[in-house]
Amino acid sequence: MSAFLDMGGYAAFVWPAYLVTLAVLVLNIIWARKSLARALQAARRRTAAAGEDS
């Protein structure tokens, strides 16, 4: 296991590269879901307001 973590001496380069990539993959999911949630919330608020008017 420690040999795997050591990556033949390249641990300081391999692991940060994978971490950065995973972080951006996860961030893309979070950002996309957040923007959808925000748009949905705004739309719900608007339809609710429209419903009260009618």
Binding site: S35, L36, A39, A43, T47
Partner: peptide, 23 residues
């Protein structure tokens, strides 16, 4: 696809179908 949905909701905010879809 997720981002496009958010964009559509924002751009179509003045239309009727959004209210119908959400209800």
């Amino acid at each position: 696809l997720v981002r496009v949905r958010a964009e559509i909701l924002q751009r179509e905010r003045a239309t009727r179908w959004i209210g119908e879809t959400l209800r």
